[in-house]
Design a protein around this nucleic acid. Structure first.
Lengths: 227, 227
DNA sequence: CCCATAATTAACCAAATGGTGATTTGCGCT
DNA sequence: AGCGCAAATCACCATTTGGTTAATTATGGG
């Protein structure tokens, strides 16, 4: 086995360990010694491989951002489906959310890494929403920007503030039970947002017309419906 | 002026400075030396007054939680109004949001301080929602827990992830422009959520609930329970 | 005015931190 | 076998950290 004295392998081990550590403690709170211990590697190797704690952090952000971009690119256009899909994604990627959150808190408004890539990623989703709006699949009323933020907000929030989610619902946001309730709510919300009277204006309209019910698979399949 | 050698005054100065520092850097990132400098006070005084960094932090949480509870108690029952009111509140209390967020990240799911007080605070709002639901002022469909989380989510999100808000909208979430757009969106959303397909039975019934103010306790124990 | 006491300060400390220089160890090659 | 070189280790550093010991200064009461 080439596992001894294999630099690539060592790098991977460090990256994996560093991801956990950064997710758990943030950049400032993370300890290089702890990363080394978790990785089962001499602390010196961190600096040998990545030069500095900062560089290591950047490297991890790059990787994670790449992943998330790939996710958004393959995301379904139908609103309820997207909501469900996102919620599931966040649930199984709490670490990524935490990383994101740490960064917002520690680093401030300007992304330290891959600003362009991120902008691109967001733009793609916004574009989809805009097209959906033009084609009448979602209401014309709201700003797509704001709508997008709201959709992400609703799905991500319980994992961003697990404390509050637990206080409100009485159970852990990581539990199956919570996920079920959330799905149910997201369905309701999605229907609300898409169905009633979006043909013309955002005028409140009494004709709550049941519309094509979106098929949602709770399993995390690719759910392809590109563009 | 009695500003010289006044312990209460000194405490206040420290608390104010510590609030900024903790909001900016979190607990781990905050530096006692920086707090002292900001407060224009000898570092030793922090420990003289509060015993430890940890205690100082707890004290601040206590105060802020008290504030937020008072806010929620006086909050309007009408949904759109509540949305608007919350959004405005968050906007002018970004520091409080940050503190909250830091805590979620650094301290984990279990509140370190005032768990009971918080639960009470959430319960009050949930109760209002439930009543609104019974009286038909908001739809019967959704779980109040989930609805509550979603409402908070939508209003708080831009300030939680200013990076993303900026990427999506192109402007700073702290700008006037953003606030305007958000208000417009919240109106739209509120209408959507309340109007279609149920009867509106307006009954301006407001019950003021007397609230016991908790005594500040430096030795607040985390109320441990294995999770 | 004096003195006990409380508020304030200065100097200091042990532990921990990110980071390095020097050294050893093992793999691949001839 | 022996050599070159990269991978891995070890011991160490300068700095920063929360926290403390002990000295100093003001204040209010007698």
């Amino acid at each position: 086995m080439g596992a001894v004295r294999d630099l690539e392998r060592t790098k991977e081990k460090i990256l994996r360990a560093a991801l956990s550590e950064f997710c758990a403690k943030g950049f400032a709170g993370a300890r290089t010694a702890a990363i080394a211990r978790r990785a089962g590697v001499n602390k010196r190797m961190i600096f040998y491989c990545f030069g500095s704690k900062e560089n290591l952090y950047r490297e991890i952000l790059w990787r994670k951002i790449g992943e998330s971009m790939r996710f958004f690119e393959s995301e379904p256009t139908e609103l309820v489906a997207a909501l469900i899909r996102w919620a599931q994604k966040w649930r199984q990627e709490v670490n990524w959310i935490r990383l994101w959150e740490w960064e917002a808190l520690e680093r401030g408004v300007r992304p330290v890494v891959a600003e362009e890539a991120r902008r691109e990623c967001v733009k793609v989703v916004l574009e989809k929403l805009r097209r959906a709006q033009e084609e009448g699949r979602i209401p014309q009323g709201p700003d797509v920007d704001q709508l997008f933020l709201a959709l992400v907000a609703v799905t991500v929030f319980p994992y961003t503030y697990p404390q509050l989610a637990r206080l409100a619902s009485g159970i852990s946001p990581m539990s199956e039970e919570f996920a079920t309730r959330q799905m149910k709510f997201l369905h309701w919300l999605g229907e609300r947002l898409t169905c009633a009277g979006f043909e013309k204006t955002a005028e409140p309209n009494r004709t709550a017309k049941p519309q094509r019910r979106s098929e949602v698979d709770h399993t995390d399949k690719p759910a392809q419906s590109p563009v």
